[in-house]
């Protein structure tokens, strides 16, 4: 739930990047972090395994600027994608104001995407959220790969509730900020 601190003139929100293992959640945050002007940049905190897979979460505080004297500050998180960490994903999702579902567009990852999406829906419902009203954006990542499924196919399988969706190549930054802008607007609209 977003926090509006009148005394500090701050609005805080939490956005979680969710999706199957190796879909590019951390890459999204790394690209955003690399593009933030240095004077406003905080460290990107990553709790990772020895092999650089996310163990707990990545965390990036992001200061978007001021509106009516209030600073808008989003905390961006990723969840660990590996199946083993299902309960950790529940913990990180706790208190989220919006979710970016990062799907791996490759044909052989479709089943993993579907499983992760079902799990997300289940976890949000368990946390008392109404899925159809919850700020959710979808990103189809790795669209540059020859094994990527076409967007209409991904839409048919993954985006049945027709949330805003973006094609992306996160490693090159394609679609990263479009996705962030869309989820930021959805979160702000729910204040």
């Amino acid at each position: 739930m977003a926090l509006i601190n009148v005394a500090a003139r701050e609005i805080h929100g939490k956005i979680v990047y969710y999706g199957p293992g190796l879909c590019g959640k951390t890459t999204n945050l790394q690209f955003i972090h690399g593009k933030i002007p240095q004077n406003g940049r905080s460290d990107l905190l990553s709790i990772a395994t020895e092999t650089e897979r996310t163990l707990f979460f990545d965390f990036l505080p992001l200061d978007l600027g001021k509106v009516h004297g209030f600073t808008i500050r989003f905390h961006l998180y990723t969840v660990p994608g590996q199946i083993l960490y299902e309960r950790t994903r529940v913990a990180v999702l706790n208190g989220a104001d919006g979710v970016v579902f990062v799907a791996d567009a490759q044909r052989d990852r479709l089943a993993d995407n579907l499983q992760s999406l079902r799990e997300l829906a289940h976890n949000l419902t368990n946390q008392g959220k109404r899925l159809l009203e919850f700020p959710l954006v979808m990103q189809y990542n790795k669209m540059d790969l020859p094994t990527a499924l076409p967007t209409p196919v991904l839409d048919r399988y993954l985006n049945t509730i027709k949330v805003p969706r973006f094609e992306a190549v996160a490693v090159k930054g394609t679609g990263v900020f479009e996705t962030l802008r869309a989820i930021s607007k959805l979160v702000v609209n729910k204040l």
Binding site: D63, L64, G65, V67, H68, R181, K185, V188, N189, L191
Partner: peptide, 27 residues
Amino acid sequence: IRKAAVDTIDLLFNDDSAPSPGQTTEK
């Protein structure tokens, strides 16, 4: 505040839409 915040986000991410009057963007 919602409308102003959405306009600010568009402005920050280089969108064409113009910000609302009264909005301040310090970045």
